[in-house]
Structure formats: structure tokens, C-alpha cells
Design a protein around this nucleic acid. Structure first.
Lengths: 197, 197
DNA sequence: CGTACTCTTGATTTCACTCAATTCAGGTGG
DNA sequence: CCACCTGAATTGAGTGAAATCAAGAGTACG
């Protein structure tokens, strides 16, 4: 399993290309997305270390992925990976659960994108990051690796609206933002209430 | 594997309930959804005959499901189903593909909900139905089993906006609608172009 | 140290939501 | 068989939230 560096903004896999490899993020952060004809982008997720990348339909990648920051990924040929699965039956069951969970959470996101105001989407996003970053208890200080444009493309908003939403949460004393890449959740419970009210 | 009828609007599984059974739709149509606290609903999919229902997280259903029209479903206890999977290794691989495809298509929907105008969402929805209904070539005449409210809750719109979008597509000569449950695609290619322009 | 990018804020426009009324279709009972 | 009733769909008017257009301030990187 070869590990390679991926530079900031470098595209690792492109939607529609033959899915020759599966990848695991070792360090950094990858951005998974699809492009629309008019140049707009919908980000479907951010990958942290240990996350898996390489889901395919009909032997081709279903989306594109590039690096948010300098990143290291480890890759394995699909053929070898399939062999792996065959050898370790538990792995397949595990993978099934994993994909099932991703499906459930994708459907949760449908709910957010379809029915929530901009500030609530942002609140929900921050809570999700907090959950993911704190290994035991959810963290109250979040380091935003991605920029505003990434958040916008993840939440289906514009950069300007994301920025205004940050301001709005700040004014409501739900968050504190010492700089644009750091957020402190002042009252996670109240933020949670706000997000799904 | 027992088969039971489900009346129109009857709830078959509820989000959060213990996931004791898996179901297969035999006849009719099921509606898979989640409710938000304010009473609104996000439909995550419509199930046709042969479709599978019963995905769970931590042993509990991740969403609710009820019948759009009188429907017949066949059910099997989870335990028995797992046994089935163990006995037939190919089944698990098949299931993994199935869930993977659903994940990809859920992500496509994120794109639609996040970034598209109401008419384009509807166009995309109709094309999806056409694809699903025509077994070989996509159908050009679509029978809408579900009502406007269902379509609205699927596309993250209101009933009124869905209705206006139908009118808009009709005026643009993209569709014809003899009655509210029948749609004819006058020019699928042009509709396709419109949907992802 | 300067240049380019990112982020924020302001003004205006647009598109979908809300509220309200009317039309239409299907089903029921006289 | 027709009149009525109910729920569904359409249409209209007005409002509101986010997009767009446009500057300016901040920050990071070469």
C-alpha cells in the first residue's frame, strides 16, 4: 500500500474516471465533490485521517476529490482490495455498516439542505465538526481547516451568506470567532436547540 | 417470509423503533421519510416493487415509511436475513453494491437540493421517474403515483411551487399534462439539457 | 514587503414561501 | 344519474430570505 503526498488543491480522483484504486487518508484533509455544468460545486464531504475514499459505480468513481490542505493518502489497487475483502469476511460486513451509516447521514443532510435556514445549516455544520474533532466529548473549540467557500459549497449556500451566518451566530452569542479559522462554541446545547428548532 | 397489505397512508416503520424486520415491496409504493420538529417532512425516496426497506443504525430504523397507495410488502426477521447473508456470500456483495449506489444517488440529490431552481428540480425528478419506469428505454409517459405534496417534500419545495413548476415546464413545451397524475415528456433531451444547465 | 486571495459588510434583486381564494376531480348519498 | 362534498391542485398577491452585485478590510504567502 503506497503512500503519496497530495498538494493543496491537487485533484486526486475525478468523477467518471476508471476507479483503479481505493484510498485512505493518512494525514490532512480531502474534499469530495461534484461539479455542475455552470461551474458550481457541491461538496459531499470532508475526509479526515483514516477515512476511506474510492466508492465506485460501474467501475468508475462517482465523484471527484482534491486536497484542502497538503495531505498524505495511501492507496491500494481495487483488485487487491477486493481480495482483501474476500479473505476477511468481517471486513465486508464492516464495510456494509460503514456505507449504510454514510447513507443515513447523507439523508440527514438532505433534510438540512432542503428545509433549513442558512444560520441553522451553519450551526448544524459546526456541531458536526465538533462531534468529529472531539474523540471522546465533542470539542468546544473547532479548527476550521476548510475556507468559507468550502463551507458554502457543502451547505448549498454562497460565501457571502456563510459569512453573514457566522456574524449572526456571533451576535446571538452562540459562538465566538477569534479568527476566521477558529470557532468556539459558547453554549453547545443552545446551539443544538437552535440548529434543530 | 410473510406478506401483508399496507393501507394508504398507513405507517409501516417509524424512525427510532427497533429494526426487527426487513421488508421488500411486492406491490404498490412506499414512501420513506423523516419528520422535522416543526412538522415538516423530508421524503428521502419512493420504493417500487422489488425494492428493499429496513436499513438500520444501531439496531433501530433510521427513518419512517408509509404507503403512498394500497401496498403489499413481504417481511423477514432481521436475524433470519442475516443468516441468509451468511449463507449466500454473493448476496452480501450485491447488497454492498446496492447500498453504494443508493449513496451515490443520495449525493446526486444533495446537488439538486442545494443548487438547483424549482423547475430544474422538478425536471430532474420527472427524468428520474422516467428512467425508473421504462424497463428498457426511459418512458416518455409517466404515471405519477404520488401527489404534489409528496413531490414537494421530496424536492424540498412547497406544494404551490411544485404546481407552478409544472405550469412553467408546460408553458415551455417541455411536458404535457393531461391530468395531474399523468405527464408526457415532449422532448426528453431538451428536458435533460434544461435540468442540468 | 507587496500582491493576491479570502473574508466581511452593504445595497439591490430575485426566487421561493406564505397567505388566500378559486378551480378541479373523485367519491358519496339522495 | 345528478348534486353535493371533500381533498387536491392551481393561481394570485405580497413578503421575506438568500443570491447577486459591488466595495472595502484583513490575511497569508511568495
Amino acid at each position: 500500500m503506497a503512500c503519496v503526498p497530495v498538494a493543496r488543491n491537487q485533484v486526486l480522483v475525478s468523477a467518471g474516471e476508471p476507479a483503479d484504486y481505493v484510498y485512505f487518508v493518512f494525514e490532512g484533509m480531502m474534499r469530495v465533490y461534484k461539479l455542475v455544468s455552470d461551474g458550481r460545486r457541491q461538496i459531499s464531504g470532508f475526509l479526515y485521517p483514516e477515512d476511506f475514499l474510492g466508492l465506485a459505480v460501474n467501475g468508475r468513481y462517482g465523484y471527484s476529490a482534491d486536497a484542502v490542505i497538503p495531505t498524505v493518502v495511501c492507496r491500494m489497487p481495487w483488485a487487491k482490495f477486493e481480495q482483501f475483502i474476500d479473505d476477511v469476511p468481517r471486513l465486508e460486513r464492516h464495510l456494509l455498516e460503514e456505507v449504510g451509516n454514510k447513507l443515513i447521514s447523507a439523508q440527514d443532510r438532505l433534510l438540512v439542505l432542503g428545509r433549513r435556514s442558512s444560520s441553522k445549516r451553519l450551526a448544524w455544520f459546526l456541531l458536526m465538526l465538533a462531534q468529529r474533532q472531539g474523540r471522546d466529548r465533542p470539542a468546544t473549540v473547532i479548527h476550521l481547516v476548510m475556507g468559507r467557500a468550502d463551507i458554502a459549497d457543502y451547505l448549498g449556500l454562497t460565501v457571502e451568506t456563510v459569512s453573514r451566518s457566522f456574524t449572526s451566530l456571533r451576535i446571538s452569542d452562540l459562538i465566538d470567532a477569534p479568527n476566521s479559522h477558529t470557532v468556539r462554541l459558547l453554549d453547545p446545547n443552545r446551539l443544538r436547540d437552535f440548529a434543530d428548532s
